[in-house]
């Protein structure tokens, strides 16, 4: 254990990140039209059974995929409107992130900081949740055309989650 005095200084990434006020406007002024406001709330769907019997899926915009899968298209100015399937049995060492626009150096050390696949495997083993769907889903968050994104990526992933993977619960995380 290191003495408090010899610990490195504050992480520069902390600066201005607490609560990130005004992020919506910041991003939207940089990439006009990329941020969305919806007028309506989606009615909540209730859990139909205890969590310990639920099949859980995970959806992430961190751009992670299996190492032998095709990389995400990060050079394209409007983004990549495809997604990748990640087997829910995958480990840190099987996975790689190809994405710009957010820091993933810590995720390169431990993928679970942004895609907690191994923690979810543990929760399933401990029967906190019933099981994991065979596949999780990943895409890149840099998509500058929300309508196109909604029409293609959102619908296709939602359909796969609900109809094909038969998830009872979906956890989601941006990056």
């Amino acid at each position: 254990m290191t003495a408090a005095g010899s610990l490195p200084g504050p992480d520069p990434r902390e600066a201005g990140t607490q609560l990130r006020p005004g992020l919506w406007h910041t991003i939207n002024s940089r990439y006009p039209g990329s941020m969305i406001t919806k007028p309506d709330f989606v009615p909540l769907v209730a859990l139909r059974k205890p969590l310990s019997e639920c099949r859980v899926t995970f959806v992430s915009s961190c751009g992670v995929h299996l190492k032998n899968d095709a990389p995400m298209e990060v050079a394209h100015p409007f983004g990549d409107f495809t997604f990748r399937r990640v087997p829910s049995t995958a480990k840190h060492g099987d996975l790689i992130i190809h994405q710009l626009k957010y820091p993933h150096d810590d995720a390169d050390l431990d993928i679970n900081v942004i895609f907690p696949i191994e923690r979810l495997q543990e929760l399933a083993a401990e029967a906190v949740i019933g099981a994991l769907t065979p596949e999780f889903f990943s895409f890149i968050g840099y998509n500058m055309d929300p309508e196109r994104f909604e029409a293609i990526v959102a619908r296709d992933i939602a359909a796969a989650v609900v109809e094909e993977q038969r998830a009872d619960v979906a956890l989601l995380a941006p990056a």
């Binding site: 990434r13 710009l100 626009k101 957010y102 820091p103």
Partner: peptide, 8 residues
């Protein structure tokens, strides 16, 4: 070698 794309 000079890479600015770290999202910072």
């Amino acid at each position: 070698g000079a890479w600015v794309h770290d999202g910072s």
